[in-house]
Design a protein around this nucleic acid. Sequence first.
DNA 1: TTTTAGCTCATACTAAAGTACCAAAGTTCT
DNA 2: AGAACTTTGGTACTTTAGTATGAGCTAAAA
Lengths: 136, 136
Amino acid sequence: MKKTILVFGMLILALLLLFQFSKYAIISGDLKVELIVAAIAIVFFFVGIYINKKSLSKTDTTVVNINEEKIKELDISNREYEVLQKIAEGLSNKEIAEQLFLSESTIKTHVSSLLVKLDAKRRTQAITKAKSFEIL
Amino acid sequence: MKKTILVFGMLILALLLLFQFSKYAIISGDLKVELIVAAIAIVFFFVGIYINKKSLSKTDTTVVNINEEKIKELDISNREYEVLQKIAEGLSNKEIAEQLFLSESTIKTHVSSLLVKLDAKRRTQAITKAKSFEIL
DNA sequence: TTTTAGCTCATACTAAAGTACCAAAGTTCT
DNA sequence: AGAACTTTGGTACTTTAGTATGAGCTAAAA
């Protein structure tokens, strides 16, 4: 936030300096008008690019939102979704079972139904499909 | 491509018009110098934003840029990286072998060395780790 | 109160995945 | 040509993953 204020302060300062400089240069006739105009144009062209890049990189992380409607559409239950998340974290059935205080059999059951619902043959494919559905 | 040429053509035209206009305005004294300078600044500021947006939307995938240095750092070979990509697509060893015209044994060898290099126990974990390293 | 749906767990089995170890071509660099 | 490395492939084995089927339990809906 402080950085933003600093950047804008510098910008305003540069703008004022350009004003003064252009006025002086035109009146004294040291430089051609075209040159000054071109310089201003180029400077603010890149300022625009810079500002735009800054604002874009901030809203960049907001792009990824979980599509909850799709989860319901695919008829994936709460428990199944939990398991799906653990799968995507790279855990084995055994590890998932331990983390959720369940037996490995139960995890296998959930995984199997997940594969059916996501129309996947493997857990890795389930991950990619889930991400394409914006579920993960 | 034709659109790009058109846009740039329009830009150059606008630039020339501004040149002429500013020269005329300053000489005739109809407008204040500050106003002209400000106008030019504002116009090119937005031009910069526009151009930047266009170029970004085209190279949109460049935002999630693959960290090639990390690949070298992890000592992952070309073939191994190819296999890693196929794993992330959710393919089985057999399917990867068919796509790359290799035997399943070879894929297993590559996968094993990938797991070691990525310090992963499973292929699913390899995917998540690779993504955290910005390799995928 | 049945019925339905979700969650749980088990057994038995098949199919992948992964490990360990070895070995032969092919490249690249010196 | 020899060294070092990548790529390829094999065998034999262990470990996960995944399927099929059945069943008990609970909570909510019909």
